[in-house]
Design a protein around this nucleic acid. Structure first.
Length: 507
RNA sequence: GGCGCUUUCGUCUAGUGGCUAGGACACAUGCCUCUCACGCAUGGAACACGGGUUCGAUUCCCGUAGGCGCUACCA
């Protein structure tokens, strides 16, 4: 079976070491889009081969993040499948077997150097590297006799298994995004593949074995893996799996919005945006990191924004649903250079999705916010308010500040606005307006509008002076939608009450 | 330091051996208007630099500089 016609199978394989970084979310998204577009499978694998870095709750957090974002997996941890187990810590026996294959074929060897000995070597020799040029000076199964090695094992000494990299070889990685990348194997070190102490492999070995066994066809991952891709090619070759080796695609990284370096949690804290999908409570330190969900971002907006950060369909369309993205996604159109995290554009996307969603949907999200201010409101009324106000905000929670005057009468009047809009005769005119409105049996927006316009015309008043004073009385500030959209919704009784209080207070 | 990747408006990006180098965010101005927003319109704003190749390079090649990553018994 050639690589071109085999089933597309991709994976997202995080380490459960903490909250999912936004860059990881994008990597998962691209894998998802690619799998869907090609009718393939997306696998969720947990790479927990470093027991020291394991963090309680991280796995569930990651799963919950993808549920919120709408990224669905076909198999893997918590999803089932025929290639399990999908948690690497549960695959010890499998790795052991393949380590033995490498050992038996002379492609790998056992090394007994302790971490302290290695540190010492590094201190002694500048740029020390464990490779063909140094391995014979070290304590390993290549430099020692079989008897010496056996004696160490029998005495209970721990060891690691290192990959024996042959120097002087050109290793070629064919990357879907970057094209052909060639390196000289001489610069590679004899990577540790397995640790006897915890009977677990390192990333490199586990990754190759699992991708092979799980029949992964494409490895779409971050650029930080590009330097070790040649090592991975060598490993596939050592196992004799080169003919079914996955295609590689290394994604550019997400950078800070300003300054140098890759995006970090600190940037988010400093500039006021989250870098994690969900709020994260660190079990050890108790520190809380904000999440997109809790910060009121709509998942559709996060997905849309992220999809376009490092990829572009080549047309001018920016607002795309997941279905659109699946249809248009193209790995080869991913940009090669890192992308700065443009959080202002992400806010714009959120604004667009607030606009795009129906008033009913937004009202449902807004309702708990209203309730948290001890306000009871009929869903139908809230929907009307949302329809009048949602275009003015970027986030649903901002709707409260923008529209709280619908629920709560002003207690004070903005000084600047009062000075500008409340003239000496305003009290008298507002009195007339109140009387006029009181006389209306039909308090509909249309009827108020007609009656008030007629009155203004008859009296020769200015439209602005009346409406602005009216607004000050009802809202307490110089903002908000059309006046009758306010008075009509709060009703006749409340309108008159606010009008008369303003007359009393402002004089 | 070594190795690798990378470089179009402030930002995300489109694009081509010959174009007024396109779009979006942000910014500015104007319009709309009973206010504030939304919206709409308009505007300023880019091919890192130096060599080649070529009739012609932003585009192809080489170099320089900048940026990013890796360089663990972490992933």
């Amino acid at each position: 079976m050639t690589i071109e016609n085999r089933r597309v199978r991709v994976r997202f394989a995080p380490s459960p070491t903490g909250p999912l970084h936004i860059g990881g979310v994008r990597t998962a998204l691209y894998n998802y889009l690619f799998a869907r577009q090609n009718g393939g499978d997306l696998i969720f694998r947990i790479e927990d081969t470093d027991s020291n870095r394991f963090v309680e709750g991280a796995e569930e957090y990651i799963l919950e993040s993808f549920r919120w974002l709408g990224i669905k997996f076909d198999e893997g941890v918590s999803f089932g499948g025929n290639y399990g187990p999908y948690r690497q810590s549960e695959r010890r026996d499998i790795y052991k077997k393949y380590v033995k294959v490498l050992l038996d074929s002379g492609k790998a060897y056992m090394a007994f150097d302790t971490p302290e000995e290695l540190d010492q070597k590094r201190a002694e020799i500048d740029n020390f590297q464990y490779d063909a040029s140094t391995r014979m000076q070290m304590r390993n199964s290549l430099s020692m006799t079989a008897e010496e090695v056996q004696a160490l094992i029998d005495a209970g000494h721990q060891y690691v298994v290192r990959f024996k990299v042959e120097p002087g070889e050109k290793v070629v990685v064919n990357d879907l995004i970057r094209g052909v990348v060639t390196i000289d194997s001489t610069i590679l070190d004899d990577k540790v593949l397995y640790k006897s102490a915890d009977e677990l492999p390192t990333y490199h070995l586990a990754n190759i074995v699992d991708d092979h066994l799980m029949e992964v066809s494409h490895v779409i991952r971050g650029e930080e893996w590009l330097p070790s891709a040649p090592l991975h090619v060598l490993l596939y070759r050592a196992f004799g799996w080169e003919d079914t080796m996955p295609q590689f695609a290394h994604l550019s990284l997400l950078l800070k919005p300003e300054g140098n370096g890759k995006l970090s949690k600190r940037d988010g804290d400093r500039l006021g945006f989250p870098v994690f999908p969900l709020e994260w409570h660190d079990p050890k330190s108790g520190a809380v990191s904000s999440g997109f969900r809790e910060s009121d971002y709509l998942p559709e907006a996060v997905i849309n924004f992220l999809a376009l950060l490092g990829w572009n369909p080549g047309d001018d369309v920016e607002l795309m649903t997941m279905e659109d993205l699946i249809a248009k996604f193209d790995l080869t159109k991913c940009s090669k250079a890192g992308a700065r995290f443009d959080y202002k554009k992400m806010i714009w996307f959120n604004h667009e999705y607030v606009l795009k969603k129906s008033d009913k949907e937004i009202a449902e999200i807004f309702m708990p916010v209203v309730k948290s201010h001890s306000i009871e409101v009929a869903p139908e009324l809230l929907e009307k308010i949302v329809s009048l106000m949602k275009g003015r905000v970027n986030f649903v929670h901002e709707l409260w500040d923008a529209s709280s005057f619908y629920f709560i009468a002003p207690e004070s009047y903005d000084e600047k606005t009062a000075k500008k809009r409340w003239k000496e005769d305003s009290a008298q005119k507002m009195g007339e307006l109140a009387d006029l409105l009181e006389s209306l049996d039909d308090f509909s927006i249309e009827n108020q509008d007609a009656a008030v316009h007629r009155w203004i015309e008859e009296k020769g008043y200015g439209m602005g002076e009346i409406m602005n004073a009216f607004r000050l009385a009802l809202v307490g500030e110089g903002k908000g939608p059309q006046m009758f959209d306010i008075s009509g919704l709060i009703g006749k009784e409340e309108t008159l009450k606010r009008l008369r209080r303003a007359i009393e207070v402002l004089g």
